[in-house]
Each structure stands twice: as structure tokens, then as C-alpha cells.
Design a protein around this nucleic acid. Structure first.
Lengths: 358, 358
DNA sequence: TTGAAAGCGCTAACAC
DNA sequence: GTGTTAGCGCTTTCAA
């Protein structure tokens, strides 16, 4: 890295003090003529203010730390894009870290971000209610806003959808289509409060409808083969006729695995995902899912944090509306029931269900 | 942000000098007993070294800047994930910026990264050969490695696939299937050296086969409706029977738009994309495309940069292998009759046709 | 093995 | 409106 001009050199060339140069740079009151001289010196030297020196003096890095599980899942990539959008023009930059869904890397990532003295954080953690990482962040008093993590008793500021209500809505829709035996596959629930909330709502609706508790199978996040898992599920005496997957990536993989096992979706099994990533509308059959406004979630989280940083009091939790997308991966359960019915082709479900906004 | 313990406070509590604390932190030689005392003080105070102070003193931020067009395209999200992977364990963190495919934002993003005194950069620019941004980076002598931008006369270090050869391979495959009238749609070629290289190879192969120059249509990156563009293309007297799209997102959108226009893929038109994003294998019909090893591209770029930063001499360009994926979106041209285009009143001369690349 | 001291580049009182 | 000056937290000679 080549030597860079310092504020001091600019001052000398312009024949003023460093304080004056600083004022010009930061837009403070300076005589027009002086400002012009300084501006010229800046141009001549190719001077670029050193943010490190500035940060040290002002005790503000103008950095926002972002920590998410992985950019490989579009739902997070979109949120980060939203965060970048929300931060744009504010003078803040994003320091990025990925946890790869692992708690130890979550911790390591935060440590790294903290070392750079980020002014604030936007992050998705494994479990907001019991997070060592969040305890740490609170201990050092760095403002933060969660994304995706469900709001709850933890009272931690988060921007998310109502995961529980969404899980419930999925079950209700499935039940409305005649499904009586429901199943769910999810990442490790212990590692995802989101999946837990979705499952809770799903199971609650099933219970209220007087149905047996949905079969639940947990699969590692980076599970390669879903086939054995699904084979096992469908080897049971009374296998589910509808499967709720805790996220779209899982759902899409499940549809593929089901196909490999000779089970048609939605004729043999209905599948519903969660997230609403763009792929879902393009796969075949199109994926029924709960759509989260990912980009908006990220943007809102960033804005909440920015507000907090500019002293507008504590950031509050925000629940954004989710939408049930009625893709072709779900169908009626009629043909699976003892009372055989020829209703194989229902009209396309183009209705969109919207939750209320808080 | 709460007050944080400084090295000075640690020194006082441990009854040593700040220099000694610094040595302990950085693993320099210190008497075991002294180190223990310091370690205890660090624990008691919850001390975390301030990277800003460190950066200012050492003139090394331990930051790597990343600038890509957008995280909304999985091809970039994956590369960034790869960069994060490649940087992992090196002690460097990633400062992130998105240009949204716009040159002005490219410039602004770099300015921001430079202000933080990043030690190096990994980025994708609009045009590596004529990039104001790269000139700037070179002027300030910050080491950098490009990703995705084609290698070329510019002699700038890049990690990419052979875009030209890949474009050529696509044309050859299409020609081998009997297609004689080829078309290509791409983002603005002036804003993408990648698309230009792909087009160059594609057009060259067509020329060598004695075919007319492929119809070329440029569409804005964030174009909403592809339908009018495609409608126009197929209103021509002898429309293409195969369409090469400069990236997968475009290709997937094109297949959808074609469907809306009543043209079946691949029966009426063959479509080939570029990138190899995961979605491609899941859409219907599955997308034929050129697969780039995105994650590996990112990881390799990061490693190249890291090598450069640790003084291993200049980073060299690396060409990673691409793979032609034979999706169901391409088929033989046999069934297309030369005059089988629906009537339309759109003038054929509104098509843009190019034979060579700048 | 340890300490004292000099800054890295910048901003913000405080003077004039 | 402008200059002087004292650090922000840290690393690193240079002595001891």
C-alpha cells in the first residue's frame, strides 16, 4: 500500500492548520477562500481522510457489523442486500461475518466484529432467547437488532415475521384441504428458534383440529441426502399426506427426494416451505410457502439500528407481514383418504392470504 | 456503547507496563508469571483489544474490502461466501459493499472501502480493461484481485473462467443440435466485460460455422419485463431458434417470458444460460447453462489476495474450469421450420445486430 | 524480561 | 475564522 497524504501535508500545502483542513473536510464553517485553497491541496495530493484516525479520535467506527448463518441461502443474501440498502447514504459501512449455522463460529464472528469496534450490529442468531453471543453483545453495550429471530419473552429487538402464526396458517390451510396426517421436517430445532416457532404454531393448529401430533424429523442443516430420512418417514404405517419444511431450501430438496422415491408432489404428498425465496416460483411444481419480505426485513433492521445509533431511543421489535403463497406443491388430501374421490385436479390456488400488520 | 477497558487499565491492574500487556496480547516473549497476571487482568476487566488503535499504529487494518454488483444474484452471493471461506482463520475481516451494477456506486463503494484503509480488495467491476475504479485502486496501490472479470490484455489479476471459450462452447453445442439462427440476450455489454467475452466467443463460433451473426439484444440489468423484448425478437422474419442468455437469472426470466408468449422451451426455442446457479437445476425445464465454480472462484480470489498480502509477490490470474450443463431447456432444431413465425407488425430493423465485440 | 516514550491521523476544546 | 494542542488505544524502538 502506497504512502498516503495526511491531513498535515494538506495543511502545509494549503498554508493553513490541520484544524482548518479538518473543518473543510467535515463541512464546518470556513472562509470560502480558505476552503478553496484546502480543496485544491486535497486534489493535488489525492488526499483521502483516514477513517482509522478519525475512528480512534471520535470513538465511533461508522461500521455496522452483520452476522448471518450463510450467504448460500438466498433468504440471508437478500436480507444482507436489504441491510446494505438500508444503510446506504448514512455514512456507515458493513463489516460482514458468516456463522455457518455454528454457535462457535457465531461467537468467533462476533469477537472479530467487536474488535473493530462496530457501532452496531444486525444479526441472526441460533436462538435469541438463550444466546451467549447476545449476552456478550449486551454486556459490551453495542446496539443491535436481530433479523428473522422470532420476537418473544427475551424482549430483544428483532425484525421478523410472526413465525408462529405463519406455522399455524400453514397447518390450517393443509387441514382445510383435507389433510389429517401432517409431518414436518426442519433443521435442528435446538439450533433454530425460527424453526421452533414455526413448528409450535404448526403443531398447535393440528392439536386444535383434533389431529395427532405432526411427525417431526430434524435434519442437519447441511444434510446431503434427504432421501433416507423421507424413506423412513413414509415407511411408517400411516405416513403424513402433507409435509411442512422449515425453510424453502429444505422443501425444494424434499420435493426432489420425494420424486426420487417415486412419490409425486402434490398428488401423493403435499409440500410447503418457508421463506419465499425466488426459486420457489420457478421450480416444478412451484413451491407453496410462507413468503417473508426478506429484503424489507433487512432494510428495516438497518433503519431501526440507524435510528438507535442517532439517539432515537431503544429499537423496538417489528413484525412485518408474511404471505402464504399457494404454489402447486400442495393439493387436496381427498385421494389419500379412505373415502375415495376423483378430485385430482383442483383449480389453481391463486389466492393470496395476508396477515394483519401490527 | 459502554466504556471499554483499555490496555492501560489492564496494565495498571496487572501492575505492569502497557508494553508488556501488548506483548502478552500479541504472543511476544514474556515471563510466564507476568503473562498469567496480565491474563487475569484481561479476564477481570473483560478487555478486548481495540483494533482501531492497533490499525492506526501498524498502518494495517486487517480488513479486506469486497465490492460486487449485488447479493440478489446468487452467483455473487456464492462468491462472497467463498471469499469469507477463503479469508477464514487469516485474521482478516470483510468490509462489504454493493455497486448495484452502477458505475457511480462502484466508485462510491470503493471510496468508502478505501477510507477504512482496507489492506486489499476482492471485487467484480463492470469492465476490467477500462475501469476508473481500478485505476484509482492502482494509484493508491492497494492490492486487489478481480473475480468473474475476464482475464485479458489489461493484465489485471483476476480469478475467473474462460468466458470466451465458454461462449464458444455454447454456440458449438447449439450448432451441433442443428440450430442455424442463434440469438443472444445480455445486460448492457458496455457495462459488462463478462457478457462481452461470452458474446465474442459465441459470435466467433457462429461465424466460423458460416452462420449469420447472432441476433443480439441488450436489456437493462434490472429490466422488469422481458416479454416485449422477446416479442420483438420473435417478430422478425427469421427469428432465432436458440437463445443464449448472458446469465442464468436472465435465462430463467426468458424461459418464463417465452412461456407467456406461447413459445415452448425447448420445443419452439432452446435457451442456454450462464453461471450455473443452483436454481437452474430445479426449474422446469431444467436450465442448460455454463457452470462456473462460484464458491471456489471467491475462495481462490481471497487466497490469491492473502498470498499477495503476506508478501508472496504479485497475484497471478487464475482460470478455473467451467462445465457445460446439459439441461432440458435445449433441444434439437430439427422441428423448427424457417418460416414458422407468428404474424406481427413490429419492424425487423429495430433489432440490434452485432458481429464483433469491442 | 520489562518499561518509558514517541507517535500513527485525526477531532475538538480552547484560545486568539 | 483560524490556530494550538491534547489526546483517542495501540505498537515499537530503545534503554535499562
Amino acid at each position: 500500500m502506497g504512502r498516503r497524504a495526511t491531513i498535515r501535508e494538506v495543511a502545509e500545502l494549503a498554508g493553513v492548520s490541520v484544524a482548518t483542513v479538518s473543518r473543510v473536510i467535515n463541512g464546518a464553517a470556513v472562509a470560502p477562500e480558505t476552503a478553496a485553497r484546502v480543496g485544491e491541496a486535497v486534489a493535488v495530493l489525492g488526499y483521502r481522510p483516514n477513517g482509522v484516525g478519525r475512528s480512534l479520535k471520535t470513538a465511533s467506527s461508522r461500521l455496522i457489523g452483520v452476522l448471518i448463518p450463510s450467504l448460500a441461502n438466498p433468504v440471508f443474501a437478500e436480507a444482507v442486500d436489504g441491510i446494505a440498502e438500508g444503510v446506504d447514504g448514512s455514512g456507515y459501512s458493513l463489516l460482514f461475518g458468516a456463522s455457518d449455522y455454528r454457535r462457535d463460529r457465531e461467537r468467533a464472528g462476533i469477537e472479530a466484529l467487536l474488535r473493530y469496534r462496530v457501532d452496531g450490529l444486525v444479526l441472526t442468531v441460533a436462538d435469541a432467547a438463550a444466546s451467549e453471543v447476545l449476552d456478550l453483545i449486551e454486556a459490551v453495550e453495542v446496539p443491535y437488532v436481530l433479523v428473522y429471530n422470532p420476537a418473544g419473552d427475551h424482549r430483544r429487538p428483532t425484525v421478523t415475521v410472526d413465525n408462529r402464526a405463519a406455522g399455524r396458517a400453514v397447518a390450517e390451510r393443509l387441514i382445510g384441504l383435507g389433510h389429517r396426517r401432517l409431518g414436518m421436517i426442519a433443521g435442528r430445532l435446538a439450533d433454530s428458534d425460527r424453526a421452533r416457532a414455526r413448528h409450535a404454531g404448526f403443531a398447535a393448529a393440528a392439536a386444535e383440529a383434533g389431529l395427532p401430533a405432526p411427525t417431526l424429523r430434524e435434519v442437519p442443516f447441511t444434510a446431503p441426502g434427504l432421501e433416507p430420512v423421507l424413506a423412513e418417514i413414509f415407511a411408517a404405517p400411516a405416513p403424513p399426506t402433507a409435509l411442512f419444511c422449515s425453510n424453502d431450501m429444505l422443501a425444494i430438496a424434499a420435493v426432489a427426494a420425494l420424486g426420487a422415491l417415486g412419490r409425486a408432489v402434490p398428488d401423493d404428498v403435499s409440500v410447503v416451505g418457508f421463506d419465499g425465496i425466488a426459486i420457489g416460483t420457478l421450480v416444478h411444481p412451484s413451491l407453496a410457502t410462507v413468503v417473508q419480505p426478506s429484503r424489507e426485513l433487512g432494510r428495516t433492521a438497518a433503519q431501526q439500528l440507524l435510528g438507535r445509533l442517532s439517539g432515537e431511543g431503544a429499537a423496538a421489535s417489528v413484525i412485518l407481514p408474511h404471505v402464504l403463497r399457494h404454489g402447486k406443491s400442495v393439493g387436496p388430501a381427498a385421494k389419500h383418504s379412505p373415502t375415495a374421490s376423483p378430485a385430482s385436479n383442483l383449480p389453481a390456488h391463486s389466492l393470496v392470504t395476508r396477515t394483519s400488520t401490527p
